[in-house]
Amino acid sequence: MLYSEKVMDHFRHPRNVGILEHPDGVGEVGNAKCGDIMKIYLKIDQDTVSDVKFETFGCGSAIASSSMATEMIKGKSLDEVMDLTNKAVAEALDGLPAHKLHCSVLAEEAVKAALKDYYDRHNIAYDPKQFSSIDCEGCH
């Protein structure tokens, strides 16, 4: 198979699909031209991700990466969220095909974009360098 069992499981049964009605932070990355858009909604309570949802337009590995990424940050402290890497997402999925690694990058970036949105909305200071520019070209 092209994808691992883990990828297929998360693709077939994605966790946390949907939207949050009153999110504390929202991040959207990718673009439709490239065929991948991910949108992450965060609910944050006492520096912890109390709820998370995602919407994804994209391939199997994009959907699985979104699902896995939301699972990985749910209930975690914002510091832990900040430590999420695309590598960790891909590993948690038992690997992705080389030309699909960018999907895990997108998942990391969507999570970070949502977090940044939370900081911005709540006027919480952060180091902008922590949020690398989210750029479609970068992952090709």
């Binding site: 693709f11 077939r12 991948d36 337009f57 994209g58 391939c59 199997g60």
Partner: peptide
């Protein structure tokens, strides 16, 4: 509109 081909194919394969 609104969807991506590969995920459609995988679900159809299922």
């Amino acid at each position: 509109e609104g969807i991506e081909g590969e995920s459609m194919l995988l679900l159809l394969d299922d």
